[in-house]
């Protein structure tokens, strides 16, 4: 095994081009487990922790360009206003020690359906910035990023540089079920973002299908229902029947399996409950914000 320590992004891309099977390692919270338990013996480890750029984030007009290695702890503390869904998801990642070390790049690279960041990214809307020495930078929409169980749209010579996450234009929530009250892998997870500017709603579901998925039919149904009822303008309560239908459609978007962490049937059920609750929380928050704005006006 060789340990490659590029000092810059260019060096990292060159190394990845030369050794396409090299395994990138940053926080190490996935890769080192595989090495410690003899599940993986890559020819090369490509250490990305010396590349300072990966640890920076920048706020753009529409989105935040989040360096792949910005640790979850900093996402929680520094990006709660811009990326509330992701900040909530970050707070549910493993333990404080892991949150100090792991970042979204790792979640995307591993592309496990159980990765906590995915539902939040799907709900907020995001593009993954990847690069290769040969072809330079390209942007992969998050909806096209997850291609299979633990598979993503990266080419062998590419590395994840950053993820551009849309800044919140409305309330966002994230909820995850685990069988322990901390330090637990998701049995299933759900992210919801209201986008008042476009009067749309986006969702993300984790651990309930071979890849992280959106509940497209549920999103469309809810957006239509809110529009029809004039809810965006009035801010009035979402009727229970709408919430119920939304929850059902979210359950229906799942394609889960039975495994040691939970049954498929439970996952479907729990996604529905989380969908309904996160809708209530975000909508209450939207109404509250409207009232505050109106009060101030």
């Amino acid at each position: 095994m060789d340990f490659l320590r590029p000092a810059s992004w260019e060096e990292a891309l060159a190394a990845k081009a030369e050794h396409p099977t090299a395994v990138p390692i940053a926080g190490g919270t996935d890769v080192m487990v595989e090495i410690n338990f003899d599940h993986r013996r890559p020819g090369h480890l490509l250490d990305l922790t010396r590349i300072g750029d990966l640890y920076d984030w920048e706020r753009g007009e529409r989105s935040v360009r989040l360096g792949a290695s910005v640790p979850y702890t900093r996402i929680m503390s520094e990006l709660r206003a811009d990326l509330p869904g992701l900040a909530l998801a970050a707070h549910t990642v493993a333990s404080p020690q892991i949150r100090n070390r792991g970042g979204v790049g790792g979640n995307l690279g591993t592309a496990s359906p159980a990765g906590d960041a995915h539902p939040a990214l799907l709900a907020a809307g995001a593009e993954v910035e990847v690069a290769s020495a040969a072809r330079g930078t390209r942007m992969i929409p998050i909806d096209a990023f997850y291609t299979g169980v633990k598979r993503n749209a990266l080419e062998p010579d590419e590395l994840i540089r950053a993820v551009h996450v849309r800044r919140a234009d409305g309330p966002q929530q994230f909820s995850k079920v685990g069988t322990r009250n901390a330090m637990v892998i998701a049995v299933c997870a759900f992210g919801l973002a209201l986008h008042p500017e476009t009067r749309t709603v986006r969702t993300g579901i984790g651990s309930a299908a071979p890849t992280p998925v959106r509940a497209a039919a549920a999103e469309e149904f809810l957006a239509a229902a809110l529009e029809e009822g004039g809810h965006w303008e009035s801010g009035k309560t979402v009727p229970p029947s709408v919430a119920r239908q939304f929850a059902q459609l979210c359950s229906g978007a799942c394609n889960p399996i039975d495994d040691v962490r939970g049954t498929a049937s439970y996952r479907r059920h729990a996604v529905g409950v989380m969908a309904r609750r996160t809708l209530m929380w975000t909508w209450e928050s939207y109404r509250g914000a409207r009232r505050t704005t109106e009060g101030a006006a």
């Binding site: 080192m32 338990f37 250490d47 922790t49 333990s95 100090n100």
Partner: peptide, 25 residues
């Protein structure tokens, strides 16, 4: 595997699981 915290050390001041830090890092 980063699930118990028994190996916690400060790395540049930050608590981390030293079992998940590659030696070279």
């Amino acid at each position: 595997q980063g699930e118990c915290g028994s190996c916690t050390v400060r790395l540049d001041g930050v608590p981390v699981c030293s079992c998940l830090v590659a030696a070279g890092q």
